[in-house]
Amino acid sequence: MIGTWTLFQRESRRFLRVKMQTIVAPALTAILYLIVFRYAMGDRQVPGLDVDYFSFLIPGLMMMAMLQNAFANTSSSMIVGKIMNVHVFLLMSPISAAEAVFAFLAAAVLRALVVGSVLLLVLLPFSDLSLAHIWMILFYGVCGSLIMGSLGLIGGMWSKTFDDMAMVNNFIIMPLTFLSGVFYSVSQLPPFWQAINAWNPFFYLIDGFRHGFIATGDSDPLQAMGAVAILTILAVLSAWYLWRIGWKLKE
């Protein structure tokens, strides 16, 4: 118990110590996006949905920032640990795989929630966004962070260098989150890409999260919940299993 709590503290202090990079910078990036799209789109509505573009965009950007930060927290800790050789202390400690994964994911979720809250607080005064279903926001926010935190752990275990890690981030995580309907309604896509998009798990995460705010979207959020829950469990279990066998960590 003390071990898990200590590791959680270590992992959360790590990002709190460099707030500029981990909280302020993502918030600023999201705000820049919003300013740009606010002036580019004006008061236009999202085609097919009865909602203005600005209100559509805010939850999507929030969720994208949360997902990327949850991933960054676990993956950077793993890769820095490997490069600096600090991960040996984790391996040598009596903390079990379940405890370690729990502590890492709890810190990832905390970072995602902090970043999400900061964005919301900054942007709320400039919009007439409502909070239609808070439980739905929390469900998708937390599940999304758990999935991304687990992927970050797995990516961190797999990577040998910062370059490997950057590759995972830039070629897998960024495209998947960017092309998940943050900036557009999926119904605007050609049918072929709509079909492909139906298989992108991040689409359901972002759409469900947004549904919690604007009570409308491209998917049925209640139906998607089951799939998201299963995906979350699978992601967490994979991270736990790989940690347990010491995949790419122990020879």
Binding site: I2, V18, V80, M84, V88, S93
Partner: peptide, 20 residues
């Protein structure tokens, strides 16, 4: 091996905690 984010005192506190 050292954790670049923390001071020796913090490192020792965390180490002890991680041993429960």
């Amino acid at each position: 091996a050292f954790d670049p984010f923390f001071s020796p005192r913090e490192v020792l506190k965390f180490s002890r905690g991680m041993y429960g």
